[in-house]
Simulated scan of single mutants.
Amino acid sequence: MVSSCELCCEVIIAILLPPLGVCLRHGCCTVEFFICLILTILGYIPGIIYAIYAILFLNRDDYYDEYRRPIYYVA
């Protein structure tokens, strides 16, 4: 579980630089990062909205358990 201080810092970073906030939470070569990067290039506000959504509501660990993990996933 993420501490509230860490979560608050990530949200502040996501407001200032949306792709960096998503990169800290999900990694730099993920789909979430590239979606946030494209949305930030197209418009700053959509990038912020998606970054906050990706930080607060998306949890990739729920989707990558032993039975539902994709073929290309390397543990």
Rank of each mutant, 00 (worst) to 15 (best):
I35D: 09
I12M: 04
C29G: 11
G47S: 05
I35V: 15
G47T: 10
L58I: 13
N59G: 02
I48V: 14
E6A: 13
D65Y: 12
Y63G: 10
F33V: 01
C36V: 02
L7S: 08
Y73H: 09
L7H: 02
C8L: 11
I71K: 12
E10L: 14
P46A: 05
Y44K: 13
L16G: 08
Y44P: 01
S4H: 13
V22N: 00
F33Q: 00
R68I: 09
I13V: 15
I12N: 01
F57I: 05
R69A: 12
V74I: 14
C36P: 01
S4A: 08
P18N: 01
R25A: 04
Y64M: 15
E10P: 00
P70K: 09
Y72I: 13
I45A: 13
C28E: 00
G47K: 04
N59F: 11
E32Q: 09
I48F: 00
V31H: 04
L42Q: 13
S4Q: 11
I38D: 10
A51D: 09
A75C: 03
A51V: 08
V31F: 10
E32L: 06
L20V: 10
I15S: 06
C36M: 02
E10S: 06
P46L: 06
G47W: 07
L24E: 07
A51L: 07
D62N: 10
Y64H: 13
A51S: 11
R25V: 08
A14F: 05
Y50L: 02
